[in-house]
Design a protein around this nucleic acid. Structure first.
Length: 179
DNA sequence: AATTTAAGCAACCGCGAATAG
DNA sequence: CCTATTCGCGGTTGCTTAAAT
Protein backbone atom coordinates (compact mmCIF):
# COMPACT_ATOMS: atom_id res chain seq x y z
CA UNK A 1 0.00 0.00 0.00
CA UNK A 2 3.02 2.18 -0.16
CA UNK A 3 2.93 3.98 -3.47
CA UNK A 4 5.45 6.77 -3.35
CA UNK A 5 4.51 9.74 -5.46
CA UNK A 6 8.03 10.04 -6.83
CA UNK A 7 9.90 6.79 -6.74
CA UNK A 8 13.36 7.64 -7.79
CA UNK A 9 14.17 4.66 -9.93
CA UNK A 10 14.69 5.55 -13.58
CA UNK A 11 12.96 8.88 -13.57
CA UNK A 12 14.74 11.90 -14.95
CA UNK A 13 15.65 14.74 -12.68
CA UNK A 14 17.10 18.20 -13.10
CA UNK A 15 16.79 20.40 -16.14
CA UNK A 16 14.17 19.58 -18.74
CA UNK A 17 15.13 18.81 -22.31
CA UNK A 18 13.35 20.31 -25.30
CA UNK A 19 11.80 16.96 -26.14
CA UNK A 20 10.42 16.50 -22.66
CA UNK A 21 8.91 19.97 -22.80
CA UNK A 22 7.26 19.20 -26.10
CA UNK A 23 5.82 15.94 -24.82
CA UNK A 24 4.38 17.66 -21.79
CA UNK A 25 2.95 20.57 -23.77
CA UNK A 26 1.49 18.26 -26.33
CA UNK A 27 -0.11 16.00 -23.76
CA UNK A 28 -1.69 18.83 -21.80
CA UNK A 29 -2.94 20.47 -24.97
CA UNK A 30 -4.75 17.28 -25.81
CA UNK A 31 -5.92 16.17 -22.39
CA UNK A 32 -5.85 19.27 -20.22
CA UNK A 33 -4.35 19.69 -16.78
CA UNK A 34 -4.93 17.38 -13.89
CA UNK A 35 -4.01 13.99 -12.48
CA UNK A 36 -0.33 14.66 -12.26
CA UNK A 37 0.24 11.25 -10.79
CA UNK A 38 -0.64 9.40 -13.96
CA UNK A 39 0.40 12.03 -16.46
CA UNK A 40 4.07 11.07 -16.90
CA UNK A 41 3.22 7.52 -17.87
CA UNK A 42 0.42 8.62 -20.16
CA UNK A 43 2.55 11.28 -21.79
CA UNK A 44 5.55 9.02 -22.15
CA UNK A 45 7.73 11.01 -19.79
CA UNK A 46 10.28 9.58 -17.40
CA UNK A 47 9.48 12.12 -14.74
CA UNK A 48 7.48 12.11 -11.57
CA UNK A 49 4.15 13.88 -11.62
CA UNK A 50 5.37 16.49 -9.25
CA UNK A 51 8.17 17.45 -11.59
CA UNK A 52 5.75 17.67 -14.53
CA UNK A 53 3.38 19.86 -12.61
CA UNK A 54 6.17 22.23 -11.61
CA UNK A 55 7.51 22.46 -15.12
CA UNK A 56 4.09 23.22 -16.53
CA UNK A 57 3.00 25.68 -13.85
CA UNK A 58 6.24 27.62 -13.72
CA UNK A 59 7.53 27.48 -17.21
CA UNK A 60 5.45 25.95 -19.98
CA UNK A 61 1.97 27.32 -19.36
CA UNK A 62 1.02 29.47 -22.33
CA UNK A 63 -0.36 32.34 -20.26
CA UNK A 64 2.97 33.12 -18.63
CA UNK A 65 4.26 36.63 -18.98
CA UNK A 66 7.95 36.26 -18.10
CA UNK A 67 10.50 39.00 -18.57
CA UNK A 68 11.26 41.88 -16.27
CA UNK A 69 8.85 43.00 -13.63
CA UNK A 70 7.26 46.37 -14.28
CA UNK A 71 7.35 49.02 -11.61
CA UNK A 72 3.69 48.65 -10.78
CA UNK A 73 4.17 44.92 -10.42
CA UNK A 74 6.99 45.57 -7.96
CA UNK A 75 4.81 47.92 -5.96
CA UNK A 76 2.01 45.39 -5.86
CA UNK A 77 4.30 42.64 -4.66
CA UNK A 78 5.68 44.81 -1.88
CA UNK A 79 2.22 45.90 -0.78
CA UNK A 80 0.81 42.40 -0.88
CA UNK A 81 3.81 41.03 0.95
CA UNK A 82 3.29 43.59 3.69
CA UNK A 83 -0.27 42.36 3.96
CA UNK A 84 0.11 38.64 3.45
CA UNK A 85 3.69 37.77 4.31
CA UNK A 86 5.33 34.94 2.40
CA UNK A 87 2.12 33.63 0.87
CA UNK A 88 3.55 33.58 -2.59
CA UNK A 89 0.76 31.83 -4.38
CA UNK A 90 -1.73 34.35 -3.06
CA UNK A 91 0.50 37.20 -4.12
CA UNK A 92 1.14 35.69 -7.54
CA UNK A 93 -2.59 35.22 -7.94
CA UNK A 94 -2.86 38.99 -8.07
CA UNK A 95 -0.24 39.27 -10.79
CA UNK A 96 -1.51 37.94 -14.10
CA UNK A 97 1.02 35.80 -15.91
CA UNK A 98 3.34 35.49 -12.92
CA UNK A 99 4.00 32.35 -10.93
CA UNK A 100 4.53 32.02 -7.22
CA UNK A 101 8.04 30.73 -7.87
CA UNK A 102 8.85 33.71 -10.04
CA UNK A 103 7.49 36.19 -7.53
CA UNK A 104 9.28 34.47 -4.69
CA UNK A 105 12.58 34.45 -6.56
CA UNK A 106 12.17 38.07 -7.51
CA UNK A 107 11.42 39.01 -3.96
CA UNK A 108 14.42 37.18 -2.58
CA UNK A 109 16.91 38.39 -5.14
CA UNK A 110 15.73 41.95 -5.83
CA UNK A 111 12.90 43.39 -3.78
CA UNK A 112 14.19 42.28 -0.43
CA UNK A 113 17.56 43.89 -1.04
CA UNK A 114 15.90 46.97 -2.41
CA UNK A 115 13.88 47.47 0.76
CA UNK A 116 16.92 46.83 2.91
CA UNK A 117 18.91 49.43 1.00
CA UNK A 118 16.05 51.86 1.58
CA UNK A 119 16.31 51.21 5.30
CA UNK A 120 13.13 49.16 5.47
CA UNK A 121 12.99 45.82 7.19
CA UNK A 122 11.59 43.45 4.57
CA UNK A 123 10.12 41.23 7.26
CA UNK A 124 7.78 43.76 8.74
CA UNK A 125 7.94 46.56 6.16
CA UNK A 126 8.80 49.13 8.77
CA UNK A 127 11.79 51.44 8.89
CA UNK A 128 14.74 49.58 10.23
CA UNK A 129 15.44 50.64 13.79
CA UNK A 130 18.78 48.90 13.99
CA UNK A 131 20.69 52.16 14.29
CA UNK A 132 18.52 53.64 16.98
CA UNK A 133 19.80 52.44 20.33
CA UNK A 134 17.09 51.26 22.70
CA UNK A 135 18.90 50.67 25.99
CA UNK A 136 16.21 48.86 27.96
CA UNK A 137 14.34 46.96 25.31
CA UNK A 138 14.94 43.32 25.98
CA UNK A 139 12.79 41.54 23.42
CA UNK A 140 13.99 43.74 20.62
CA UNK A 141 12.58 42.73 17.25
CA UNK A 142 14.96 44.94 15.34
CA UNK A 143 17.31 42.13 14.48
CA UNK A 144 19.51 42.88 11.54
CA UNK A 145 17.76 41.56 8.51
CA UNK A 146 20.92 41.76 6.48
CA UNK A 147 22.52 39.33 8.85
CA UNK A 148 19.77 36.81 8.21
CA UNK A 149 19.74 37.33 4.50
CA UNK A 150 22.30 34.85 3.34
CA UNK A 151 21.71 32.39 6.10
CA UNK A 152 18.06 32.11 5.14
CA UNK A 153 17.03 31.88 8.75
CA UNK A 154 13.43 31.82 9.67
CA UNK A 155 12.19 34.98 11.29
CA UNK A 156 10.72 34.85 14.73
CA UNK A 157 6.97 34.62 14.67
CA UNK A 158 6.42 38.04 16.15
CA UNK A 159 7.60 39.63 12.91
CA UNK A 160 4.58 38.36 11.06
CA UNK A 161 1.79 40.61 9.85
CA UNK A 162 -1.50 40.65 11.69
CA UNK A 163 -2.94 37.16 11.46
CA UNK A 164 -6.59 37.96 11.81
CA UNK A 165 -6.54 40.29 8.86
CA UNK A 166 -4.76 37.73 6.75
CA UNK A 167 -7.19 35.01 7.64
CA UNK A 168 -10.11 36.99 6.30
CA UNK A 169 -8.37 37.64 3.01
CA UNK A 170 -7.32 34.04 2.64
CA UNK A 171 -10.79 32.81 3.36
CA UNK A 172 -12.24 35.19 0.85
CA UNK A 173 -9.74 34.09 -1.73
CA UNK A 174 -10.36 30.41 -1.16
CA UNK A 175 -14.08 30.87 -1.42
CA UNK A 176 -13.69 32.58 -4.74
CA UNK A 177 -11.29 29.95 -5.95
CA UNK A 178 -13.53 27.05 -5.07
CA UNK A 179 -16.64 28.60 -6.52
C1' DA B 1 43.58 35.31 -18.87
C1' DA B 2 42.50 32.48 -14.95
C1' DT B 3 40.24 31.93 -10.81
C1' DT B 4 37.04 33.05 -7.24
C1' DT B 5 32.71 34.92 -5.61
C1' DA B 6 28.02 36.42 -6.09
C1' DA B 7 23.47 36.72 -8.48
C1' DG B 8 19.68 34.75 -10.67
C1' DC B 9 16.70 31.30 -11.39
C1' DA B 10 14.79 26.51 -12.37
C1' DA B 11 13.89 22.67 -9.94
C1' DC B 12 13.72 19.72 -5.74
C1' DC B 13 12.03 18.37 -1.08
C1' DG B 14 9.13 18.01 2.91
C1' DC B 15 5.00 18.69 4.86
C1' DG B 16 0.28 20.22 5.55
C1' DA B 17 -4.16 20.53 3.07
C1' DA B 18 -7.40 18.58 0.19
C1' DT B 19 -9.65 14.83 -1.72
C1' DA B 20 -10.97 9.98 -2.67
C1' DG B 21 -12.41 5.70 -1.08
C1' DC C 1 -16.11 9.67 10.19
C1' DC C 2 -11.18 7.53 9.21
C1' DT C 3 -7.25 6.41 6.35
C1' DA C 4 -4.56 6.53 2.17
C1' DT C 5 -3.26 9.05 -1.65
C1' DT C 6 -2.49 13.15 -4.32
C1' DC C 7 -1.89 18.05 -4.72
C1' DG C 8 -0.01 22.54 -3.80
C1' DC C 9 2.80 25.62 -1.16
C1' DG C 10 6.88 27.59 0.80
C1' DG C 11 11.64 26.92 1.83
C1' DT C 12 15.81 25.47 -0.03
C1' DT C 13 19.31 23.75 -3.13
C1' DG C 14 22.36 23.60 -6.88
C1' DC C 15 23.50 24.77 -11.59
C1' DT C 16 24.62 28.53 -14.84
C1' DT C 17 26.14 32.91 -15.86
C1' DA C 18 27.98 37.44 -14.64
C1' DA C 19 31.04 40.24 -12.00
C1' DA C 20 35.00 40.94 -9.30
C1' DT C 21 39.76 40.06 -8.10
Amino acid sequence: MRKPCCDKQDTNRGAWSKQEDLKLIDYIRKHGEGCWRTLPQAAGLLRCGKSCRLRWINYLRPDLKRGNFAEDEEDLIVKLHALLGNRWSLIAGRLPGRTDNEVKNYWNSHLRRKLISMGIDPNNHRPNTINLPRPHHKNSQAVSSTAKLSAGLKTPTNDQPARSRVAIIVTKYRTVQVA
